[in-house]
Design a protein around this nucleic acid. Structure first.
Lengths: 331, 331
DNA sequence: AGTTGCGATGTAAACGTTTACATCACTTCT
DNA sequence: AGAAGTGATGTAAACGTTTACATCGCAACT
């Protein structure tokens, strides 16, 4: 059942080299011969052995997508984006989740060094010294999806947190809001940092005063949204709108606001970031920022593929995937 | 940088066979020699070439996870479940999404015949004749994740839709509800069919009358939930509780019920199925059925691995992954 | 007619690893 | 002391494919 070029060669009365050439399509083979070979191949139900092919060519049509140790609503979109794009260029995608049984560093080393994959896409929130150390020793091309924008030496794809937060803030200002609060994410999280910066810069640029206690720290959880929002509601000088660093914290805001008998957006407005699935089902539906997550995957794959195909040591590129304001009823 | 066993052999002054044996750990090598080899390997930063290894052993430590043409909130959990389990046995997971550029049949054929992967897990909602045809010609082991329980000849893992729906219905009956309605999913969808059957069987077993117009057809969308629920609310003999075939339809119920000024669960109760992320954030939080999706992946992977490891043509097995009632405030 | 060029095809090596078999140096029998 | 057995190691083939190089036949030159 598992036919090889040898068998085709025998049946077609040609050498295996000719078969190989006929099948690969490129080289010079007489059209008659090619047709013959193709026909025999079909008849034998031939499937090339990719293992052998990759092995001898010393390259692989597999790319690794290395994911961090957490589950995320958005991972499947990234995976799909990568897989779709890779497939169109004849590549397959291997997914590796690092987790307790296998550190990220270990994954990188074993996977990238084994010849199994031709390139890798790494989803890494924060590039530690250790990780960079390992990466610098790897010889296959890779691309990083990360919001860690302090790195120059790698090709990176990231969400335009800054730009999106800036737009959202400016949108609120244009709508007439003067008192805009922000609940930020963890202070060591780059998404959070950039969103905060987008918010403050937009305020500054539009000559809007930011009171210091209008910026309160959260940690991207619903609970922290509740706490942060409570703080804001207790303020003498209450903000008119709360820009939560992500939707989960916005959700927390909704809960405490409604618990206190206030109405959104009449008494106070709320906007978020991420456009998680439930955002549009909240009441009122949440105005937020939608990141085209699958584009992260697509872009990363494209970048990697370009490295794989024309392997001139091109300069490392940084690409930001833009986001879109989703205007609903919460402001 | 890319060291091979040849180089190790040279440095350690042994033959490549000895190196191979020392590294693979199994065969008989003098302990001193093994240590020496190991040390040299480490020093050379050696990584075995998996491509070569798989090639010569004519087996692969890659398994393919073939997904259908849609994106789903739950896919990442399945992927993670498969990957985690596979990894623990030394296997890697390759994800293939079939889609417009690549039919499922095509994916199956090219992937499973190329020697690249040693086995496959296929997520297939409905096993068409064509698909079965292709599957029957494949020679590598595979496992199917599906709710299509009309198949005997394959190893399958599925959600226990029937049992879970039965439990939910019985739970409602025990709570004292006498008038239970059901909004079913598409009539050609096996999940929907089994859930409906679980519901009716539980009613019958508990001698509960089911009025014909208490069962209304939906199609798993929120909109269909709205329509179906409206029909139920318009009934002279209104049900006391609506068991929606999935959470999205339950969400639709919430909307129309609240729009009509009714209270859940005071005026009417609603329960769902799936435990999608937003279920717990609805107000009131939705009582529903949680399927341990990652277990689908884990179980499928275990099944496949057992086939891969002891390749005695064991009987094909069917495994149902059980579900759990998540009792919240909606009834 | 002999040379050159070229297109088509064949030959064989190579890729890195595993593994069946051969070999060798001992030890332990008889 | 020789035979037989055993444990450690080496030799070489094999896996399926690609590809550099060699070869061959034929057309188009001089």
């Amino acid at each position: 059942m598992v036919s090889t070029i040898k068998e085709i060669a025998k049946l077609a009365n040609v050498s295996i080299a000719t078969v190989s050439r006929a099948l690969s399509g490129s080289s010079k083979v007489k059209e008659d011969t090619r047709q013959l070979v193709l026909q025999v191949a079909k008849q034998l139900n031939y499937n090339p052995n990719l293992l052998a092919r990759n092995f001898v060519k010393r390259k692989s049509n597999l790319i690794a997508l290395i994911l961090p140790d957490i589950t995320d609503e958005f991972f499947s979109e990234i995976i799909r984006g990568v897989d779709d794009t890779a497939y169109l260029s004849g590549y397959y995608t291997m997914v590796i989740s690092s987790h307790k049984n296998r550190s990220l560093v270990e994954s990188i080393h074993t996977i990238m060094g084994a010849g199994l994959v031709g390139g890798a896409i790494l989803l890494i929130p924060y590039l530690s010294k250790e990780i960079k150390e390992v990466l610098n020793h790897e010889r296959i091309p890779f691309v990083i999806i990360s919001s860690d924008n302090n790195q120059n030496s790698y090709s990176m794809v990231s969400i335009d947190n800054y730009g999106a937060a800036y737009s959202m803030t400016e949108f609120l200002i244009k709508k007439g809001y003067k008192k805009i609060a922000h609940i930020s994410g963890p202070s060591d999280n780059n998404d959070a940092i950039n969103r905060l910066k987008g918010y403050t810069d937009a305020c500054v640029y539009n000559q809007l005063k930011i009171k210091k206690n209008w910026i309160v720290n959260g940690n991207f959880t619903r609970e922290s949204g509740i706490d942060a929002c409570a703080q804001l509601l207790d303020l003498k000088d209450k903000p008119e709108v709360i820009f939560a660093g992500n939707d989960m914290m916005a959700l927390g805001c909704y809960e405490i606001i409604q618990e206190r008998g206030l109405k959104i957006p009449k008494d106070i407005s709320v906007v978020g970031f991420d456009d998680i699935m439930l955002a549009k089902y909240l009441s009122p539906p949440l105005t937020t920022v939608k990141v085209h997550i699958n584009e992260l995957g697509i872009t990363a794959a494209e970048l990697l593929l370009s490295k794989l195909i024309n392997q001139n040591g091109a300069a490392e590129r940084k690409i930001k995937v833009s986001a879109e304001l989703i205007i609903r009823k919460s402001c």
